[in-house]
Simulated assay, not measured.
Amino acid sequence: MVQSRRFRILVTAVAAVATLGLAGCTPAADSGTGSSASSAPLPTGTVGGAHFDDGFLSVGTGEKVVDVYFDPMCPICGTFEEANGRQLSGLVADGAITLQLHTMTFLNRASRGTDYSTRASAALTCVAAADASSTLSYFAALYADQPAENSSGLTDKQLISMANDAGAPDITECVTDDRYHSWVQQANDDALAGPIPGADIDAVTGTPTVLVNGTSYTGKVNDATALAAFISSN
């Protein structure tokens, strides 16, 4: 099932990747303040790897900061993760970088009313808050089994099971009570509206958007060598 799903996504994205740099998936005009927000209060402070006030999930302790803005439904983000995920994880493990993941939800519109981007982003936040060391394993799993655009996406039960497989603590309660739905929607809205502190862009205009110490990477999403060189030189 995983191989088949990944194949469909790559077929959709491959023509774009040949010529496209980053920001391959773009929001619609009405992508902010979606209906996926819950009535739960917005969390504050830092819990595990979730930095709620700053709007990102963080792993690593390196002096160099790499920010990645992503939507779980974006096929170009899937291509980026497939090409660069292992490399970024290695740089985190080596202490070379701090990786800050910024959840985006504007492709909720491409999940047949299930708000998949919000649900997957919130589940990732559940994992990061419960056990920061499991964040990247779960992030990789979301893209290894990424649903195609205009499908219903993975179910909450599947998202919970994937967290167990990634070695994270049980996130069942966190997922079923929609604990972080409002927060991931707010993070999406803030990134689209801007400003992006310390960055050379005013706001996020698509995903994936990658910044290294605030400088935008504009190379091809599937060129791991180019990304490595960019990280090294910034």
Rank of each mutant, 00 (worst) to 15 (best):
S4R: 10
S4Y: 09
R5A: 10
R5T: 04
R6G: 02
R8L: 15
I9E: 14
L10P: 00
L10G: 03
L10E: 13
V14F: 15
A15H: 08
A15Q: 11
A15I: 07
A15R: 13
A16K: 12
A16M: 05
A16N: 06
V17N: 10
V17K: 06
T19W: 15
L20G: 07
L20Q: 13
G21Q: 10
L22Q: 09
A23T: 03
G24M: 09
C25T: 04
P27D: 07
P27C: 11
A28R: 04
A29C: 03
A29F: 10
A29H: 08
A29E: 15
D30T: 10
S31Q: 04
G34I: 08
S35C: 02
S35N: 11
S35K: 12
S36M: 04
A37F: 05
S38N: 05
S38Q: 06
A40T: 01
A40W: 00
A40E: 07
P41Q: 06
P41S: 12
P41H: 11
L42W: 10
L42V: 12
T44L: 01
G45E: 11
G45H: 04
T46L: 03
A50L: 01
A50F: 00
H51Y: 12
F52V: 02
F52T: 01
D53A: 13
D53N: 15
D53I: 09
D53T: 11
G55V: 02
